[in-house]
Amino acid sequence: MFQVNARLLYNKRIKKNCHEMALSAPQIAKSALPGQFINIKVTDGLEPLLRRPFSIHQIYRQDGIKILYEAIGKGSKALARRKSGESLDVIGPLGNGFKLGRGPGAGGRRHVLVAGGMGTAPLVFLAERLAEAKNQKPKTKTLVLLGARTKDDILCEKEFKELGCEVRIATDDGSRGFKGYVSELLKDELNAIRYPLSAIYACGPTPMLKEISRISQEYDIPAQISLEAHMACGIGACMGCVIKTARNALRATEYEYKRVCKEGPVFEASRVIWD
């Protein structure tokens, strides 16, 4: 973990309320793993008081970090007003990211990435690392399912395609691709697929992740899901951002709290207890 004054390289609106920012933070960029996050003090003053966590979207020119965010709350709106050349107090890389090439499903030949809305952000970084690993194991393929409200809200389609991923789209209003939730699209895909699947990796709104956990159990495919929680510190000190997890995968009644910022934000779906 590093705490650095990161120079803002650019901060631009890419569509609707969605913004993209790049920060120069060599130490963080060099050690970051897909699924990890950074915690940014978005202003110098007391409003907002707490840092804001953002998943790492991409490594930018080796020494930088890109984030993708929606300017909707007090913190993200303040962040959208920051200008290039300014410096931001950033802590990272934080948490445990996606496990690649180890753990359940590592032997399979196909990964499925499921993204809901802004949950697309960390999955681009993941797809990059999977593509790098693919160069060693040429038979591995990555399928990306992108969920968005409408066709105008679809994020990073081009990036995934450039990485050699197969991309399918689901929109809530059916303005493009599959009409309905991306979790429903996942079920359709799983019904159609005839080759061994290694794992599902997902990030998005909580109801979507809950549904994906259910699907992963129904189809007996391991899923890694990246969760969100309100955080005070982001470094494991305050115990604020906990979720309920099963102590033992077989006996879901015995629970323990795990910190989203420290043991997470990526969890094995089978361990998460949904209330």
Partner: peptide, 30 residues
């Protein structure tokens, strides 16, 4: 952090929220 005789799981989440120039917590002595 405060220690009790027996382990404590603490309170259910959400446990914190931000307020003007402050924050609320109810960790419950996990």
């Amino acid at each position: 952090k405060t220690i009790t005789l027996n382990p404590r799981k603490g309170n259910p989440p959400p446990r914190t929220c931000e307020t003007p120039a402050g924050m609320l917590n109810s960790i419950g002595l996990e």
